[in-house]
Amino acid sequence: MFPHLNGLGIHDPSQIERYSLRQEAQKDVLKIYFKKQKGELFAKSVKFKYPRQKKSVLVDSGSHQYKEVTEINRNLTLIIDELNKITRHETPEEIDVKQKILKDLRHLEKVVASKIAEIEADLEKL
């Protein structure tokens, strides 16, 4: 039913909770977040990077000047279409921006604390 997500190795699309898309330099970064499973501290996520497609666009036909522009990868647009079908069925909630930022900040604190503990444990092994 979702051939492009299956191509990414996602065989149970019902576990997808949300996704984010951002641009880094000449790449688009897609991050897919899965529903948190019982006993997990953090929900799992996977990240995919897609190079942006470059194309030349005619800026001035009189002087034949071209400008190189980038656009989103075609495969990525197909994946996003499938992700939208999965995630759009949920009704959007009105979230207080301040509460969302605080929630994101608390999550970041947990991730950083966990990573620090992991690095310290690795140092102890040396």
Rank of each mutant, 00 (worst) to 15 (best):
M1S: 11
F2Q: 05
N6R: 15
N6K: 14
N6D: 07
L8M: 07
I10N: 07
D12Y: 13
P13M: 04
E17M: 12
R18G: 09
R18N: 08
L21Q: 10
L21Y: 08
L21I: 12
R22S: 10
A25G: 03
A25H: 06
Q26T: 03
Q26L: 08
Q26I: 04
K27C: 06
K27F: 15
V29P: 06
L30R: 02
I32P: 01
I32L: 03
Y33C: 13
Y33Q: 14
F34R: 05
F34Q: 11
K35S: 04
K36I: 08
Q37I: 11
Q37C: 14
K38W: 10
G39C: 05
E40K: 15
E40P: 05
E40T: 09
A43D: 12
A43C: 11
S45P: 01
V46M: 15
V46R: 15
K47T: 07
K49E: 12
R52F: 09
K54S: 04
K54I: 00
K55M: 01
K55H: 04
K55P: 00
S56W: 00
V57Y: 00
L58D: 09
V59A: 13
V59M: 14
D60Y: 01
S61G: 03
S61C: 01
G62S: 13
G62Y: 08
S63L: 13
S63Q: 13
Q65M: 09
K67V: 00
E68A: 04
E68M: 11
E71D: 15
I72E: 02
I72T: 09
N75H: 03
L76N: 01
T77M: 12
L78Y: 03
D81T: 14
L83S: 07
L83D: 02
N84R: 01
N84A: 00
I86M: 04
T87S: 02
T87W: 01
T87M: 02
R88L: 01
E90G: 06
E93P: 01
I95L: 14
D96Q: 05
D96W: 08
V97P: 07
Q99E: 11
I101W: 13
L102T: 06
K103N: 07
K103L: 08
D104R: 09
H107V: 06
H107N: 14
L108F: 05
L108H: 14
V112C: 03
V112W: 02
A113W: 06
K115C: 02
K115W: 05
I116W: 03
A117M: 09
A121K: 15
L123W: 08
L123K: 01
E124K: 15
E124T: 09
L126Q: 10
